[in-house]
Every structure is written in C-alpha cells, then in structure tokens.
C-alpha cells in the first residue's frame, strides 16, 4: 500500500496516471475526428487511408487509457477500464490538447490538424522510447512507427494542396490560421510534465519544439505556405485542454462518441 500523504513514489505514480490519461485522450480524440470521416472522405482511397490512421490512434488510446486506469487503481483501489475512461467521463474530465478536437471543417482542416499533431506525436513518442517507464517505452516503440507515417501522410497532402490550386492553397491558409492558436498548448509544461521529466519518464514538452518547428517549417516551405501570424488561444483564466477546458466543438464530439455506450451500458460487439 502506498500512503496518500504525498510520498515521492505516490506523487510519481499520480503523475504517471495523469500523463497516460492526457496522452490517451489526445490519441482518442484525434482518432475520433478521423473516424467521423469514415465513408465520408473526399475519395475512396483516402477514406481507407484516414481509417487506417484513425485505427492506429485508437490502438494507442486503448493502451494509454488502460495504463492510466491500472496506475490509478494502484493509488485509489478503484479500477476504471479503458471504456470507463473513454465513454463515462464528462467534458471537463478530458485532458486532451484542444488541437485534436478541432472539427473537420473541410479537408484542409483535417490535413492541417493531422500535420501539426502528428509532428508533435512523432517527437513525443521518439522521446518516450527512451522512457524509464517500461510501459511507456513499449507503447512508444510501436506508436512511433505509426505516427511517422501519419506525419508523412499529412505533410504530403499539405504540399499537394498548398502548392496546388489557388482554391486549395487558400483553404490550407485558412485551416492553418484556425489551428495555429492551439499549437503552444502542445509544448506547455505543468506540474505533471515536470514530475514526469524529473523522473526520466518523459520529455519536457518544450524540448520537443525545435524538431517540430523544423518539420513544420520544412513542410510549409515545400507547400509554399506560411506560418500564420495569429496569437495563441488561452482558455478560461489561462486554463486549456490539459485542465479540462475545451473548445465549443468538443461537447458535440463527445455526445456523438459516447451516446451509444451511455444509451446501452456495456454494449459490445
């Protein structure tokens, strides 16, 4: 038994559970946004490509949420399964970054969201392969290959659309402007990431930024697009996705994602 009095070991376990939860939420919500496009992608081959990526992300989400639940159980004695965490939490209990919840306004928005997020996920999982935590290292070892392809897929589309027609380039510029305010949140640190970095479990998010900048700037240059000059969005009283403060679109996403499980508890196939 661990005590609840704030021993260092308990603090690290608490941080591990919180960290796994936010990474799992990122993957889950990114996955769901792509799942919305199944049978609705602009083109049949792209439909399959996006479905594959969505399923990769869902697999990562399952591993991470299960791990969050198991770690939390050690502290509280109460187990929440991956399904409990995915389907039975309310909006303010989700700790994903807001970037992944941005809607598929048009295909350019999907491409931009995927490019910015996959670029981050690639650097994150690359760093996590060296984690002192074996579970994170194992999940990252598998995920890094997946997100490497996601990143490539999105960057290819960014170039194709950005360096395409006036219409496609304009839509990419609009999508970049809409998504860019949510970039800083990816690299923001807090108590959780400080404990995680201090224990050698994961990176300081700010350390991931230079490589991400290089990747995104390279893709944008090839796509003949520019970084939009828009300020970062803060949430309520400076709080954001990691604090459970989300964008307006998120409630609608959750309603659709959770309604079946909540209407038919325990539904499975």
């Amino acid at each position: 038994m661990r005590d609840e009095t704030g021993s260092p070991a308990a603090a690290v376990d608490t941080a591990v559970a919180a960290y796994a939860l936010r990474l799992g939420d990122d993957a889950l919500i990114a996955s769901h946004r792509l799942a919305e496009l199944v049978a609705r992608a602009p083109q049949l081959e792209e439909d399959v490509a996006l479905s594959n990526i969505s399923l990769d992300l869902l697999g990562q989400a399952r591993s991470l949420l299960s791990y969050a639940g198991r770690t939390e159980e050690q502290l509280t004695g109460v187990l929440r399964t991956e399904d409990d965490l995915a389907y039975l939490r309310d909006e303010a209990q989700f700790v994903n970054c807001r970037l992944v919840e941005l809607p598929n306004t048009d295909f350019a928005y999907t491409v931009v969201r995927q490019m910015l997020f996959s670029g981050y996920a690639f650097e994150l999982y690359s760093a996590l392969t060296r984690s002192a935590d074996e579970t994170f290292a194992g999940i990252a070892g598998k995920a890094v290959k997946e997100v490497s392809y996601h990143r490539d897929h999105a960057a290819q589309w960014a170039v194709r659309l950005g360096d395409g027609t006036g219409e496609s380039s304009g839509r990419m510029a609009s999508a970049l402007e809409a998504a860019w305010p949510y970039v800083d949140e990816l690299f923001a640190g807090d108590d959780v990431t400080r404990i995680i970095a201090g224990a050698g479990i994961g990176p300081d998010p700010a350390d991931l930024r230079p490589a991400w900048d290089a990747f995104v700037d390279g893709a944008l240059a090839e796509a003949e697009l520019r970084r939009p000059q828009v300020p970062a969005v803060t949430g309520l009283a400076g709080m954001g996705g990691r604090d459970g403060v989300h964008t307006e679109a998120f409630g609608y996403l959750l309603a659709e994602m959770q309604h079946l499980h909540r209407s038919h508890p325990g539904a499975a196939w």
């Binding site: 081959e45 792209e46 399959v48 490509a49 594959n52 290819q156 194709r160």
Partner: peptide, 10 residues
C-alpha cells in the same frame, strides 16, 4: 508518391 501511399494503405 500519392499512389504509393494509397497502395500501402489499400
């Protein structure tokens, strides 16, 4: 390049 990636996915 697009064809190659689609082929990979399909």
């Amino acid at each position: 390049e697009h064809a190659l990636r689609n082929a990979r996915d399909l």
